[in-house]
């Protein structure tokens, strides 16, 4: 008996322990449903109409998503008011405002078509959120499973997802703030999945004639990159957010650069933009729906933190930035 226990403690525990620690509730069925949703949003071909609620304002939009061997393509159209459009493909992110006749073209980031990204490090994610499977519901006449992601502190929002039981597509989602109020909500009212021989055709870009103003934010040369200015430091981000990436880009038609640092906790994200001060602003807080921003002036530069996180998070992030000349 003693030898058996000794064997267990010496041989099996080192193997089983990490599994016992990292496997808990978090990686359970709720996580599996979120994973299924992520895969479905990325891989399926679908077209649907949804309503988008933010700050007591209701908008209807249509999304078409297509994937084949060449990559993914997505088109989003506003169905009320001006027919604003966002079109994404492998190269470009194109925003069209027909009434003001403006087209903004930026470089799309490959492999970022899905709104969902599942972090590899589930254990780290568990420090910030609790995942609950709430049970079944019904959205747009379809059976769904409801997952509630509850934040463990005030630095991030909660989320609820209503996931189509049959195909895994997200039918409804809510962002919930620290006061337990819904700050943004998306809900599909109709959704069609295209499978087999049935082809989803995403119309090409609408006709854009000379009367449109084209504003191109990239030259098409994806290899053109600039080294980030290392004088800008951010040692400790609030709430356990970690730095995911840093970019530095030239502002079109200008000699100026803007540096972007992206932070994430695995589910939520926020960015810090640093550029030489051009606007006559003293800084401060701003918000639009669930997105908060905080501008701080430092060393003749504007430091702007922005993201779908509570106001306190963007403020603390902006205030954590320092400048140390190299």
């Amino acid at each position: 008996m003693g030898r058996k226990l000794n064997f267990l403690s010496k041989r099996l525990l080192p193997i089983l322990l990490p599994t016992l620690i990292s496997a808990p509730v978090f990686a359970g069925p709720a996580m599996e449903w979120v994973q299924k949703m992520s895969d479905a949003m990325r891989n399926l071909n679908y077209r649907g109409d949804f309503v988008y609620l933010h700050e007591n304002q209701l908008e209807s939009m249509r999304i078409s998503h297509y994937r084949d061997v060449h990559g993914e393509k997505e088109r989003l159209i506003s169905l009320n008011g001006e027919a604003r459009e966002v079109i994404r493909d492998n190269q470009n992110l194109t925003c069209i405002w027909p009434s003001s006749r403006k087209v903004v073209i930026d470089m799309s980031r490959k492999n970022n078509f899905s709104p969902i990204f599942i972090p590899e490090d589930i254990v780290r994610l568990e420090k910030f959120y609790e995942m609950k499977l709430l049970g079944k519901d019904r959205v747009a006449d379809m059976s769904v499973m409801v997952v509630h992601i509850v934040p463990r502190d005030k630095f991030r929002y909660g989320m609820k997802f209503w996931i189509n039981e049959q195909n895994g597509l997200m039918m409804k989602s809510s962002l919930i703030n620290e006061d337990n109020k819904v700050v943004e909500e998306v809900m599909f009212t109709s959704l069609k999945v295209y499978e087999g021989d049935e082809k989803l055709v995403i119309d090409t870009m609408p006709p854009i004639d000379d009367s449109f103003t084209m504003i191109r934010f990239h030259s098409g040369d994806s290899s053109k990159s600039f080294d980030a200015d290392r004088s800008w430091k951010l040692e400790q981000a609030p709430g356990g957010f970690w730095r995911d990436s840093v970019f530095k880009r030239q502002i079109p038609g200008s000699e100026q650069f803007v540096q972007q640092m992206v932070f994430t906790d695995g589910l939520a994200s926020l960015s810090v933009f640093i550029e030489r001060q051009t606007l006559d602003t003293k800084g401060g807080s701003s918000s639009m729906g669930a997105v908060n921003a905080y501008i701080r002036i430092l060393n003749n530069h504007s430091v702007t933190a922005i993201g779908e996180v509570p106001a306190i998070t963007v403020r603390q992030l902006a205030e954590s930035v320092s400048y140390q000349a190299q």
């Binding site: 949804f50 988008y52 989003l76 709104p115 990204f117 599942i118 998306v186 994430t264 994200s269």
Partner: peptide, 12 residues
């Protein structure tokens, strides 16, 4: 450029 969940269809 952020690759997180963001709660909904972010391009909306």
């Amino acid at each position: 450029y952020s690759s997180s969940m963001q709660g909904l269809i972010p391009q909306a």
